[in-house]
Each structure stands twice: as C-alpha cells, then as structure tokens.
Design a protein around this nucleic acid. Structure first.
Lengths: 111, 111
DNA sequence: AAAACATTTTGATAATTACCGAAATGTCGG
DNA sequence: CCGACATTTCGGTAATTATCAAAATGTTTT
C-alpha cells in the first residue's frame, strides 16, 4: 500500500484512511486497542497498557505473521490512526483518539 | 449454526464501505453529487436534479469509461451510499444522505 | 562482545482491484 | 418491429494490495 505521511495537523485524506480501513484485520486491531485489558494478556515487563499493546501480542491475536502486523501498524501510524512508543525492545501501539475523532468529523463534513 | 464474533462486533460494513471510499474517483463522485447544479450541466429531458445525475454526465466529469463509472455506481448503490432511479433510458444517481449519515455515526461508535 | 529476543525492512508471489472495450440489455420514437 | 441511444454486464490485462519468510536492525542480558 502506498501511504503518504500525515499528521493530525494536515487535512486527513479520506482515500488514504479508507485504504487502511478496507482490511478487516486492521479494523479489528483498531477495535482491540480500544480495550487492551479485555483483548490482550498483561505485559510481562510493563504493568499497564498506557502506551498500548506490543506488536507480538497483536500479531498473535490477529493470527498473521509478525512482519505483516508490523507493517500494518506502521501504515496506520503514518496515516495518524495509532501512536507508537518504544520501551526497550518492545514497541507499543495505541490508538490516536484525537486523530480518529478528527477524521470522523472530517468525514461528516466532507464526504 | 455457526455463530461468529460478528454478532457481537461487526466490522464488515466498515470494511465494505471503506473499500468503496478507497478510490479517489468514487469519493469525488460522492462529492460532486452533493451539489449537482454546481458540478453538472442541466439534463436535457428533466429540468431538475431531484433524482440525481445520469451516468453519462458523471462518466464525462470523471474522465473514465462509461462502463467503469456504471460499475462504480452499482457498487456504491449495493453498499447503500447512493440511490438509483430510472427515467426512460437514463439512470439517475443521487446520494443516500440517510445511509451516509448512519454510516458516519456507526463509525464514531465502532471504529 | 555475543547471544537472545522484538521489531522492522526487504524481496517474492498470490490475490484483489482498476479500468477498458465489446457484447448484452433496456427503452424510446418512427 | 427496428434503429438509436443509455446503461449494464462480461471478459480481459495492468496495477495495487495481501501476506509470507528471510534478512537486517535495535536493545537487553550474559
């Protein structure tokens, strides 16, 4: 997928975001990240989900290759839908609620 | 009967609609149909845009083959985004504002 | 420094989507 | 009914996306 860099401050591209949301796995990931406690086991190192969930757990839950989920999350981050935080060897991903809300508002104004 | 997780959480329609919105031409069509007077010449037979715009005009404006735009509109109709009305040999397409609004509300609740 | 582990990047191929032209269907006027 | 015209459906190829395994990169621990 061709992803153009974007931040919350740029106008969100409906086509780009829709490309991401046109895959069930990616929509599911976004949904699971809404409630990490309910959808993932606790992290062994961190005792919280403040920065989201590590790639490994998301990949296991999704049932696809680690490399694929890593790429998905990378696209989602470039599109502004999630935020990545690195703690040691783990990268945690969480929803970018502000951007998601902004996108939905953008949709309701421009679609 | 096989009960899937979909009964609890259905991402299917988000994926389906997003597939449609992941193409710039289709997003443009939806946008043009918001204001037919501003985006299309008047119809020769009908003196209004009450039922939307005929396939021919949309295809010309989009700059793609008639058959392609017809297929796009057919998908968009199946997904509920537009409404088709036949008058004689012409088919007019207009936005399904109710469905669009409903989808956006669905997104803000479930994405 | 090297082993061990999480993640990312990099090819590669299968699957899907984009889009066209041709053929088929539906509709109107003579 | 027949031609003319709008639209739809069909069959095909080019382009894009899905997804994997392997290689590369970071990071921690020994």
């Amino acid at each position: 997928m061709i992803i153009t860099e974007m931040s919350v401050y740029c106008s969100m591209d409906i086509v780009e975001i829709s490309k991401i949301l046109s895959n069930e796995l990616r929509v599911n990931i976004l949904h699971w990240l809404k409630d990490p406690e309910a959808n993932f086991p606790p992290h062994t190192d961190l005792k919280h989900f403040n920065d989201g969930v590590c790639v490994q757990y998301i990949g296991t839950k999704a049932g696809i290759a680690q490399s694929t989920v890593s790429q998905y999350l990378s696209w989602m981050q470039k599109a502004g839908l999630v935020i990545a935080t690195r703690h040691g060897k783990w990268t945690y991903y969480r929803r970018n609620e502000e951007a998601i809300a902004k996108y939905i508002k953008h949709l309701s104004n421009n679609l």
